[in-house]
Amino acid sequence: MNVFRILGDVSHLLAMIILLLKIWRSKSCAGISGKSQILFALVFTTRYLDLLTNFISIYNTVMKIIFLACSYTTVYMIYGKYRNTFDSENDSFRLEFLLVPVTGLSFLENYNFTPLEILWTFSIYLESVAILPQLFMISKTGEAETITTHYLFFLGLYRTLYLANWIWRYHTESFYDQIAVVSGVVQTIFYCDFFYLYVTKVLKGKKLSLP
């Protein structure tokens, strides 16, 4: 466990807490893509099935349970408790455009043709594109609440720190997980455009709005 990895996990957790706090305090999930949140819940569910089969560490187990709980709570807030505030009109990304290729690819390109391994691979590929419905929603409405941009910033920061973690592990332990690294690079690229807007607008106190 290196410093990039732990900071990455903390950023990831912070992102999920920021999102939950936004919904809980404003009693609204306006501007949040329910579809992205469903995809993240699917990502955690399919990746963390090893909770039932393998014990890795207390840290690993506890974090997985927290991530699952945060993710499902968020989905419940959007489609249950605060569904009246959910902007389903603008959350119009077609999920089959992501799910079909990701499912196909996880059957074709995996480490082992076993159910658990294919589901793990599916979760890695799906995570790399799960934010797209959210980014699509922002590009459609042309704006995002500042707190939503903080959420996206910490999610992107988590991805970037994981890249640093893999570079570190490659040099210190010769560890290299090709599927995770390639997907992680793809995922991080999706945040680049957003990072630019975040630094040039949000950090200068302006609201994120697209021309």
């Binding site: 090893d50 089969t53 974090m63």
Partner: peptide
């Protein structure tokens, strides 16, 4: 093989 499961990242 589940015995080789070494995925410690989240």
């Amino acid at each position: 093989d589940l015995d080789d499961w070494d995925k410690d990242e989240l």
